[in-house]
């Protein structure tokens, strides 16, 4: 047997990357504090550097692809929509012509207001996507359990994620077999809406029926026994430095609030 793999459980899980090895709770504190600071500032001059900072951290953590797969999509939609909506919404009153795109006059004030709002959303989104892209859910749940959360909640979270993967696979299979059995899955919207039920139905009833066995199987694994659990896979608890980092992040967030009020 691979003793290196087995030995890895004997010490705290580590990757050697500073950001990745931060305790999930520390990471969560930092990311949440910055996410809220974006909402508080509502200013592109703060938002753009924050968004870029998220990208840089993701890059340094070696998770840029995972991060940007999600973040890129959000950015595109938000930038496009909000820019256009603002140009439509704010074009009267005291406005300065900015650029003209094929006869469509854009105004500076609405453009800036748009970018304030864009970075408000993207600063918030970037910080949280960064958190999830660099923190496995099981690590987060482990940390919450260390803080006293029940293992049932961990189970709900982790089992949901696995169920989504499993049922997604199954739904593609069922849809294909529906097609081969002659149930129309193309055509007008009503036809397609009707195809929804025979696809979802068997999938869902099967899944519901399996919960009974799942409950029995998990009970055999002592899932419901009231006892203090041990953990095979452990993470290092947050050091004093890390705790200080968390507090600093929230102090910074509070400072943005004060700044916003004074201004």
């Amino acid at each position: 047997m691979d003793s290196e793999f087995i030995n890895s459980f004997r010490s705290y899980q580590k990757t050697g990357n500073f950001w990745l090895d931060l305790n999930p709770i520390t990471k969560l504190n930092i990311c949440l504090a910055f996410a809220f600071s974006a909402l508080i500032m509502l200013d592109w001059r703060y938002g753009i550097p924050l968004c870029l900072a998220c990208c840089v951290v993701a890059l340094l953590a070696g998770k840029f692809k995972v991060f940007f797969d999600m973040y890129g999509k959000v950015c595109m939609i938000v930038i496009l929509f909000v820019t256009i909506v603002r140009q439509i919404g704010m074009r009267t009153g005291n406005v300065t012509p900015f650029i003209n795109i094929f006869g469509w006059q854009w105004y500076l004030e609405s453009f800036v207001a748009g970018w304030d709002r864009i970075t408000f959303i993207l600063g918030f989104s970037g910080s949280l996507i960064l958190f999830f892209a660099t923190t496995p859910m099981r690590d987060l749940m482990y940390s919450f359990e260390q803080l006293g959360m029940s293992h049932e909640n961990s189970f709900i979270m982790l089992a949901s994620m696995q169920n989504i993967i499993d049922l997604k696979k199954a739904s593609v299979t069922i849809l294909e077999s529906q097609k081969s059995r002659g149930i129309e899955t193309d055509g007008n919207i009503l036809v397609r809406a009707k195809a929804f039920f025979p696809t979802l139905g068997p999938l869902l009833l099967g899944a519901i029926a399996s919960t009974e066995e799942k409950a029995i199987a998990m009970d055999a694994r002592a899932f419901s026994v009231k006892r203090k659990h041990t953990f095979l896979r452990e993470l290092a608890p947050a050091s004093t430095t890390q705790k200080t980092l968390s507090i600093a992040a929230w102090v910074f967030c509070a400072a943005t609030l004060v700044f916003r009020f004074i201004r």
């Binding site: 793999f5 087995i6 459980f9 004997r10 099981r138 293992h151 961990s154 189970f155 982790l158 089992a159 696995q162 169920n163 499993d166 399996s210 066995e213 799942k214 199987a217 998990m218 055999a220 694994r221 002592a222 899932f223 026994v225 006892r227 203090k228 659990h229 041990t230 953990f231 095979l232 896979r233 452990e234």
Partner: peptide, 25 residues
């Protein structure tokens, strides 16, 4: 249905019951 769905390796899956019983690591 007998696989918990919350562990990422077989080794950890097999260990789950012992973790729940609080057996030392």
């Amino acid at each position: 249905t007998q696989i918990s769905g919350i562990k990422e390796t077989v080794f950890e899956e097999v260990a789950l019951g012992l973790e729940n019983l609080g057996v030392p690591k």
